[in-house]
Amino acid sequence: SKICLVCGDEASGCHYGVVTCGSCKVFFKRAVEGQHNYLCAGRNDCIIDKIRRKNCPACRLQKCLQAGMNLGARKS
């Protein structure tokens, strides 16, 4: 099975251009559409994995963007 390129959980498919799990898919959509201005309490290098993905939305969003997630991406 495929793994989420953001948190490493089991992926549910290709979302916004990137193979991700459902949790990261929903997080990314809400983060971008809600125009959240997340700030990292650390050094913008928090570990984002299945267990810690909820700890720092700033670093999670950064990881989504680095993976290439794009709200305008067509479903493939």
Results as ranks from 00 to 15, higher is better:
1 S>F: 10
1 S>G: 07
1 S>K: 05
3 I>V: 04
6 V>K: 01
6 V>R: 00
7 C>M: 00
8 G>F: 04
8 G>Q: 07
9 D>W: 03
9 D>T: 07
9 D>N: 05
10 E>K: 14
10 E>W: 12
10 E>Q: 15
12 S>Y: 15
12 S>P: 13
13 G>Q: 15
13 G>T: 14
14 C>P: 08
14 C>R: 09
14 C>G: 08
14 C>N: 10
15 H>M: 09
16 Y>A: 10
16 Y>M: 07
16 Y>C: 09
18 V>Y: 03
18 V>I: 15
19 V>Q: 12
19 V>W: 09
20 T>Q: 03
20 T>V: 14
21 C>M: 00
21 C>E: 00
23 S>F: 04
24 C>T: 00
24 C>D: 03
24 C>I: 00
24 C>R: 00
25 K>P: 09
26 V>A: 10
26 V>L: 10
26 V>Y: 13
27 F>S: 02
28 F>W: 15
28 F>T: 02
28 F>R: 00
29 K>N: 06
32 V>F: 12
32 V>P: 01
32 V>G: 03
33 E>L: 06
34 G>T: 09
34 G>V: 06
36 H>Y: 10
37 N>D: 12
37 N>H: 10
38 Y>A: 11
39 L>Y: 09
39 L>K: 13
39 L>M: 14
39 L>R: 12
40 C>R: 00
40 C>A: 01
40 C>W: 01
40 C>F: 00
41 A>V: 09
41 A>G: 14
41 A>P: 06
41 A>I: 05
44 N>K: 14
44 N>R: 13
45 D>I: 06
46 C>F: 01
47 I>K: 14
48 I>P: 05
49 D>T: 13
49 D>E: 10
49 D>Y: 04
51 I>C: 09
51 I>T: 13
51 I>K: 07
52 R>M: 05
53 R>W: 11
54 K>N: 14
54 K>Y: 11
54 K>G: 09
55 N>S: 09
56 C>R: 02
57 P>K: 13
57 P>N: 12
57 P>Q: 07
58 A>C: 15
58 A>D: 07
61 L>M: 07
61 L>D: 01
61 L>P: 01
61 L>N: 02
62 Q>M: 14
62 Q>K: 15
62 Q>V: 12
62 Q>E: 09
63 K>E: 04
63 K>D: 03
64 C>W: 02
65 L>A: 10
65 L>K: 06
66 Q>D: 14
66 Q>K: 11
66 Q>M: 08
68 G>A: 02
69 M>C: 05
70 N>C: 04
72 G>C: 13
74 R>L: 09
74 R>P: 11
74 R>H: 07
75 K>A: 15
76 S>W: 15
